[in-house]
Every structure is written in C-alpha cells, then in structure tokens.
C-alpha cells in the first residue's frame, strides 16, 4: 500500500482518531457496565413457585435432554395426606402405588407410610431427583390442596443460557433472574416456616438452614 499522498495522510489521521475514540468508548462502556453494577450480582434463572402453574413446559423446553427443572417438596407445608392429589391420578383405579394410579410419569414421587393415628394414615412424599423430569404434574395436583410440591431450576444441572428456553415458553412469566449467590426461591407461605425451623432447635440435620441460605427471599 502506498499511502504517501496527502489524501492518504488525512485518511490515516482520521482512522487513528477513530481508533483512539473506539478504544476510549470501549473502555468507558466496560467501566460503566462493570463499575456501576459490580460483579456480585450475576444472575441465574429460577422459577417463582408462587407464579408457576405446573403447565409442563419445563420438562420439554429445557435445552438439556433431561430438564434442569426438578420438583421440590416443602415438607413443612405438606399435609402428609393419604389420598394425595399430587400423587394419585384423578382416574385412579385403586389407591395403591401401581403406575396407572400415579400422576407422576416416572415414578419419581415416592410414597412412604409414616404413622397411623386417629383413624388416619399419614404418608410422606419425597422426590427421587434422578427420576424427576420436571413435568409439574404433581405440582398441579398438589396445588389443589396445600401446594407443598413446587418446581425449581437445579443449578448443578442448569447451564444458565443467556435466554432460558423455558422462560420464553413459560405462560405465566414465572421465570426470574436471581442473584447467583442465592439462586433459589420458596413459596411466600413457606419462607417463614423454614426460617422459623432453621432458627428453632428442630433443625437437627441443618437442612433448613442450608435451604434458607440458598433461597432468595426478596419479593
């Protein structure tokens, strides 16, 4: 390239000016974005369980083969019902654990007898996380009663896409970005219960404290 003519000099000067301006602009944009907000509050996707309607999109829209969304049981909200509306298919033939009687398509909700008293049998319902596909069928069923079952994005699985595919498909805009330090949510009704449990002496295992430490309790 032979840029020895005056036009060449002028053009080069202009280009130099633009480059300097570009670098300054890039630097100030970076400074503006980084400095004003800080590093602390990077976000992760989460479901607001109070907004979730258990539509089933979480099972199918996640970019992972096995959805990062799983069901969580809030035992402190659970009625330990015998006829659990989250466990039994409304068209059940018998109230037993046979597959055709269950709502859960993958047998991920486990029913365990706890105690019988005052003529009632009480069962505990736990989630088998590996089997759960996040379809929300049990969540929808449970919502008829106490609503103790709820869906959450599991952050050991979630790849934190820039635009969560489930969030796009979510009919109730239940997906929110939460600061990654506390990337989980509880139902509003459960926050006080779990907090009280964590602060009382009942929390032998420390699980309540561990949960409340991971939960974002902002509105």
């Amino acid at each position: 390239m032979t840029d020895t003519q005056p036009t060449g000099d002028r053009r080069r000067f202009l280009a130099d000016g633009i480059r300097v301006a570009g670098v300054v602009a890039a630097g100030s944009l970076g400074g503006f974005l980084a400095g004003r907000r800080g590093y602390a509050a990077e976000s992760r996707w989460q479901i607001d369980p109070d907004e979730c309607i258990g539509c089933g999109n979480c099972a199918t829209y996640c970019v992972l083969d096995e959805s990062a969304v799983k069901c969580v049981q809030c035992f402190d909200m659970c009625g330990y019902c015998d006829i659990c509306t989250g466990y039994f298919d409304p068209r059940y033939k018998k109230l037993d654990t046979a597959a055709e009687n269950q709502l859960c398509p993958t047998d991920a909700l486990i029913r365990t007898f706890v105690e019988g008293k005052a003529g009632q049998n009480f069962y505990e319902y736990t989630i088998h996380v590996e089997a759960c596909i996040g379809c929300g069928k049990c969540v929808k069923g449970c919502a008829l009663m106490n609503g103790s079952l709820y869906l959450q994005v599991m952050h050991d699985r979630c790849v934190n896409c820039n635009e969560c595919a489930i969030a796009v498909a979510c009919p109730t805009q239940a997906f929110v970005r939460l600061p990654s330090a506390r990337p989980y949510k509880l139902k509003r009704a459960a926050v006080a219960l779990i907090r009280r449990k964590s602060e009382s002496g009942e929390d032998d295992t420390g699980d309540a404290r561990r949960l409340i430490e991971r939960v974002n309790t902002d509105a």
């Binding site: 035992f75 706890v114 105690e115 990654s180 032998d204 991971r214």
Partner: peptide, 17 residues
Amino acid sequence: TPKFSDHAIPTSTVPDV
C-alpha cells in the same frame, strides 16, 4: 402438617451452583 411421635419433618435441600 401433622406432628409425628418419632418422625421429624425433613427439609428438602437444593444443590449448589
């Protein structure tokens, strides 16, 4: 939530990032 004679009500935990 019932009170059981010898069964503590557990708490589910959620995994870390």
